[in-house]
Design a protein around this nucleic acid. Structure first.
Lengths: 154, 154
DNA sequence: TCCGCCCGCCGAATTTGATTCGGCGCAACT
DNA sequence: AGTTGCGCCGAATCAAATTCGGCGGGCGGA
């Protein structure tokens, strides 16, 4: 994981579909070398995959919310089952399992407020293990485009 | 945005780098047709881009946390400046701007607890506009691999 | 210091995929 | 039933990925 590898990762985070030649050109190395490095990064698990990034609005999901959820009992089986089943719901983008007073943050999307409400009533109110949840609308979600190397941080 | 477009989006979310031919094969259409569809999805802004997914652990970021942050005054310029500058910090993965008692959720990563602590002291404690923040360690972050179409939801 | 080995980079050759474009068929409207 | 338009297809061309033999620099041993 030298400087060159970091640069490759950074570039592919910005554009995961740029051609190997283009990437090699930017880095000033031969395409074959670049390909070798990139494949090694995949084999080592540093690059886990490539994903298309889709627009929620274009998919008719204008509303995003974060659902702070408390679950009891906090046993392994209950926690795992909750994570797995909730992650699979189509409205759910991701689930953060956390320390603190809320056990999970569930990032959800819906067409509009009514659908969000219906979703929560159908999927959260009914569940036995959920003892409480609070919902906050997300106005905006910004993502860091470049997860480069961390600063030295002495 | 018919069923075929949805299938393309779903496939490219699962693997954003599969070849056009492979994708066309799965969907049972000609590569040229598939390419046309895919490009249209990009031009329409439904597919916004492609990103390499990187392993936090491999990048030496074993600790993830969510920082619930309150900012005052809640003026547009203060909010925007906060979002922009925080999003650019290398430790920050993403920033959710929210309704509710906490104004922002900031998803951060660090090498370890000590670095997380140092980061918060350096970047959060010092800021004038931040009047309070709470930090929760993230044990696990699961993401829905397929953001397909929403259910009919009558 | 010199020699030899090893690892990683390079570039040409080959294979595979992307892209273009002319034509066909279906469906809708007249 | 004729006409028009749109989307799909497939062959031809162009570009990229992939493979592989060879070169060179750095390191360890003599």
């Amino acid at each position: 994981m030298d400087e060159l590898d970091s640069a490759i990762v950074r570039e592919l985070q910005a554009d995961g579909r740029q051609s190997n030649r283009a990437l090699a050109g930017k880095l000033g190395i031969a395409p074959s070398t670049c390909l070798e490095r990139t494949r090694l990064l995949q084999r080592r698990g540093i690059i886990q995959g490539y994903r298309a990034e889709v627009s929620f609005k274009a998919l008719n999901r204008s509303v995003q919310a974060m659902v702070f959820t408390q679950v009891r009992p906090l046993r392994r089986d209950v926690v795992t089952a909750f994570e797995q089943s909730v992650t699979r719901l189509p409205e759910v983008v991701s689930v953060y399992t956390m320390a603190g007073s809320d056990d999970f943050l569930v990032h959800v999307t819906a067409q509009d407020i009514d659908h969000l409400h219906a979703f929560l009533l159908d999927q959260f109110t009914n569940r036995r293990e959920i003892i409480a949840f609070r919902t906050s609308i997300i106005y905006q979600h910004l993502t860091n485009p470049v997860l480069g190397p961390l600063p030295p941080a002495e």
